[in-house]
Design a protein around this nucleic acid. Sequence first.
DNA 1: CTGAAAGCGCTTACAG
DNA 2: CTGAAAGCGCTTACAG
Lengths: 342, 342
Amino acid sequence: MSKATAARVLGGYGVVSGKIKDQVMAAAAALEYRPNELARSMSTGRSGIIGIVVGDIENAFFSLAVRGISDAARLAGFNVIISNSGEKLDAEKSAVDLLIGKRVDGLIVTPARCDSIDHLRHVGRAGMPLVLFDRSIPELGVDAVTGDDREAAIAAARFMVEAGHRHLAYVSAMDVEDGGLDIARISNSAVRERVEGFVSVLTEAGLPNPLHYVRLGATNQPQTDAVIKRLLSNSSPPTAILASDSLVGLRVFKSLQSLGLSIPDDISMISFLDADWTSVTVPPITVVDQRVYEMGKLAGERLVARIEQIPLAVERLRVSTSLVIRSSVARIGGLGPKRDVN
Amino acid sequence: MSKATAARVLGGYGVVSGKIKDQVMAAAAALEYRPNELARSMSTGRSGIIGIVVGDIENAFFSLAVRGISDAARLAGFNVIISNSGEKLDAEKSAVDLLIGKRVDGLIVTPARCDSIDHLRHVGRAGMPLVLFDRSIPELGVDAVTGDDREAAIAAARFMVEAGHRHLAYVSAMDVEDGGLDIARISNSAVRERVEGFVSVLTEAGLPNPLHYVRLGATNQPQTDAVIKRLLSNSSPPTAILASDSLVGLRVFKSLQSLGLSIPDDISMISFLDADWTSVTVPPITVVDQRVYEMGKLAGERLVARIEQIPLAVERLRVSTSLVIRSSVARIGGLGPKRDVN
DNA sequence: CTGAAAGCGCTTACAG
DNA sequence: CTGAAAGCGCTTACAG
């Protein structure tokens, strides 16, 4: 029989008689035939692959997200190929290029910077849908799935303020080039919005200098130790710290621990992400639960819808967060903070 | 000029004059040309992709390993495509099939079961090198990168025995079908070897019933709670627990905590893997440091060497582990265990 | 229902 | 140094 006929049954397209079909299947099984997906993709123009570029696969935030995306992808018959940018713009650029080269059917990326978008425009021009994850870039005109970062930070900060805290710090891992901190110029929209929310609560509460204790650059343990030490050496040091993600949170926790400070008696803290470690420390840590799996799933579903050309308005999808209250925030009484630290 | 010439400069092969080269490059840049890697792979027979099938990407063990593999791959000019088996044989089979279909240049897989290997033989027959990760299957005749699981378990068990413990438990997440426990039939070689090591120490120390407290099936929190409860309801319950991985370790920790037991006064424990959470608990947990990143890197390098057809004997590469002693194992004095639990 | 041809976008010899 | 042809393994119309 002809190759075309065999191809029809193996490829599952066209029409073939039952008898021949059986013969082909038998032969294919005997020869351990597996279709060459590469060739198939070349003809059909679809690779069946979704490309993902995340900041750091070792970060629980991203690995959970990846599982969400993968589950959505698998359900729709897609596979995923994952790249790590390490939150470096250059790595992100080449990852995107590579994935375009592999002719993925669509891309999900966590942009390291929201102010450098040429490489992201390429993907649209290459005819592939793109959905942004965790961070949004309105100018790009593509879908984005994020948390409700502003509201989350507001809830966390408000919780601390209501507990009586007057000096609150926000600590993030974001790399910063210059010393000056201009909120509007924070290039990661998630961090920017969190800081905005944080600052708005402090302003609302009539606290002075809301930006005073906002610190970026806690990218590793030594850096974090330095950040914390500087924070606490202040004349009226913060009594509560909001950590921008669970990695930062863990580092802050370790810093505090190594300084011999006890939580929440000496200092209070809240961390983003309901990570493993937050529930087994003493005390357990109050966290912002981000529902990352849902975020990933939503992003995956959205991308699939785009690939399948379902008509949809470009949107920013926000997944709501909630505060999981544990025991890391002290209630501070009467006149000013109770502390015995310096 | 001809397509062939343009292809030569874009593809970086053959010889082209400098002048023409510049023209082509300029035109390519203007048109935002990206080579179609699919087509390239079809012609060359190389996809530049390494396939990875892991048990669970959310498990820190695997995400660290994936980073090791990815780093090795990237250094050699390969990209990775990751699949999750969830430790399910069926999912693993289809992942392997899929990756073969994608014509990856080689595969690294963490076999869910070491006693079901047909699908793994396929990859060799499809002409692709395979390296096993974390678990070894000698019959398959392919490279494997593992920890020194036997020695690691021996070191951990010995540490406990030397601290005076006489009743030691081993808890793992492995799924088991029947109730009976036959070490030789544990289908995950890493777990089997750890149990062997564990048992050998108990035997050597002249302790009765070395298998008595070996428990599998701690696959989630409720299961683990049940396992722990059963263990402790024994007439002479274990005074020390060795957890087979960091997920099990965390669950065991939480179980113990929820029972109101304090570590190490009421009960001691050691966990495999130097995971995040193990250093911030009270007390910090003594762990088996598995150097997973190195394992991943080694596996990646080995696979690359195979892809590049460097002649090498088939080997099992073992990455040594070490015990990180913290404070979760109590020294038990004089006559029998000191405990006040039931 | 089945066959023969063209094409996907590259690379690889083979000529000129 | 450059061009024209063949081929990688599929799918997609188009005939029969």
